[in-house]
Amino acid sequence: MASILNVGRIAEGFVLDHIQAGKSMEIYKYLNLGKLDCTVAIIKNARSAKMGKKDIMKIECPIDYIDLEVLGFIDHNITVNIVKDEEIVEKMALTLPKEIRNIIRCRNPRCITSIEQELEQVFLLTNEEKEIYRCKYCEEKYKKK
């Protein structure tokens, strides 16, 4: 028996589609959605003709509340639909950000960021094809899990 899951429309915010299955909770954490006063619907392991399985997120909040740069770092294949007045007004394609700040931490114990705790964690995209980021200060390569 097929079951239908119905998640209502949002008035203003974002619908994140084509999220790699299982990545939605990571996105929730990186976007700091737990600290914001907004409604979030997460659909995990939805069937997808294109991907097999995918996650979908609906985030209802003013569109200037969230910095979407981090999404390009997590997965630049995510489709971002911007919603205003219950209608999709724009579809955004993501790219790998050239620089990311305070999203990931340098694991090099000799890096200045290990000693100077108030220093920002800055990583620069050094190889777009291989999606390699390196610490701005010590050039330690970031390894994705």
Rank of each mutant, 00 (worst) to 15 (best):
85 D>T: 00
99 E>K: 08
56 I>G: 09
84 K>G: 03
66 I>A: 03
44 K>V: 02
58 K>P: 11
79 T>K: 14
14 F>T: 02
1 M>F: 13
123 F>T: 04
60 E>I: 03
60 E>N: 02
84 K>Q: 06
86 E>L: 09
34 G>N: 03
115 I>H: 07
31 L>M: 05
109 P>I: 08
77 N>P: 01
37 D>K: 14
60 E>W: 11
113 T>S: 09
110 R>G: 05
118 E>G: 05
86 E>F: 14
77 N>W: 00
129 E>L: 13
52 G>V: 07
80 V>P: 11
133 Y>C: 00
116 E>M: 13
72 G>N: 13
112 I>C: 03
41 A>K: 00
106 C>T: 07
23 K>R: 15
27 I>G: 02
5 L>A: 06
108 N>C: 11
42 I>C: 02
19 I>E: 08
73 F>E: 06
72 G>Q: 10
133 Y>T: 00
86 E>N: 10
139 E>Q: 06
115 I>V: 08
20 Q>H: 10
75 D>L: 04
125 L>H: 13
94 L>N: 11
24 S>K: 10
39 T>H: 11
82 I>G: 07
92 M>S: 02
72 G>R: 10
44 K>E: 14
40 V>N: 09
30 Y>I: 05
139 E>D: 02
68 L>D: 03
114 S>D: 01
31 L>N: 01
8 G>L: 05
34 G>W: 04
92 M>R: 15
68 L>Q: 02
73 F>A: 09
137 Y>R: 06
46 A>R: 10
95 T>M: 15
82 I>W: 02
133 Y>I: 00
85 D>K: 07
145 K>D: 13
145 K>I: 11
71 L>A: 10
58 K>F: 14
86 E>T: 06
74 I>K: 12
35 K>Q: 13
87 E>N: 05
3 S>F: 14
128 E>Y: 09
110 R>F: 15
122 V>F: 09
128 E>N: 06
22 G>R: 06
105 R>L: 12
66 I>D: 05
35 K>V: 05
85 D>R: 00
58 K>H: 13
113 T>E: 04
81 N>E: 03
123 F>R: 01
9 R>D: 13
136 K>N: 12
